[in-house]
Design a protein around this nucleic acid. Structure first.
Length: 192
DNA sequence: GGTATGATTGACT
DNA sequence: GTCAATCATACCA
């Protein structure tokens, strides 16, 4: 189980180190293979304009969940980071399913392991994450997060689906994993 | 009270 | 490749 202090650091640091950790909700989950970081100074972040009823969890203590509705259809799961009040969080974008695969398949309506948790909306559907998890602590049931067993090769790249803050390359993933929501483009060597 | 928008997905051409 | 679904939230009047 990761200590709450793990999350009391900059979101980008936490996002990169979460790759390879195992996340389960009620025993259903898998290895984290893709994350994105957001913070209070980031124009792409929900927290950039200060606290609102929706994003209040982002301004709470680190090591808690922030769950929000996306496009009126999907849920997205975040881990709150940095010192309390900074509005920083890590979006969990994809898992490699390892536990409770039958439950995931039932919720998702597919047996294809690559479509169970590849994407923030799919991941929350597979793990049955919803509004009730918003603000919950991550070091107690139903959540369980355990450290990475090995040191994966972590790739970084441009975040997906945002229109602002695109110059901040805070998408992180397990390089070469078959369970990413999208593959990582090779960053050009001359890119600033 | 009205309207524009989105950290997405899945279906379709 | 394009596009609709669908609604809570945020913002303006």
């Amino acid at each position: 189980m990761l200590a709450p202090e793990f999350f009391d650091r900059p979101a980008a640091t936490v996002a990169a180190e979460l790759i390879g950790c195992v996340l389960t909700v009620d025993g259903v989950g898998g290895v984290i293979v893709e994350t994105e970081a957001y913070d209070g100074a980031d124009p792409a972040s929900h927290s950039v304009n200060g606290m609102t009823p929706r994003n209040a969890a982002m301004f709470g203590p680190p090591g808690h969940a922030y769950v929000y509705r996306s496009y009126g259809i999907h849920w997205c799961l975040n881990f709150v980071c940095e010192p309390e009040g900074s509005g920083a969080a890590v979006l969990i974008r994809a898992l490699e399913p390892t536990g409770g695969i039958a439950a995931m398949a039932g919720r998702r309506g597919t047996d294809d392991p690559r479509k169970l948790c590849a994407g923030p909306g799919r991941l929350c559907q597979a793990l049955a994450v919803n509004r009730s998890h918003d603000g919950m602590r991550l070091d107690a049931p139903p959540f369980e997060i355990t450290p990475a067993l090995s040191q994966p090769l972590v790739a970084a790249g441009i975040r997906i689906g945002i229109t602002r803050g695109v110059e901040t390359h805070w998408r992180f993933g397990w390089s070469g994993s078959r369970f990413l929501s999208r593959p990582f483009q090779k960053l050009s060597a001359t890119k600033k």
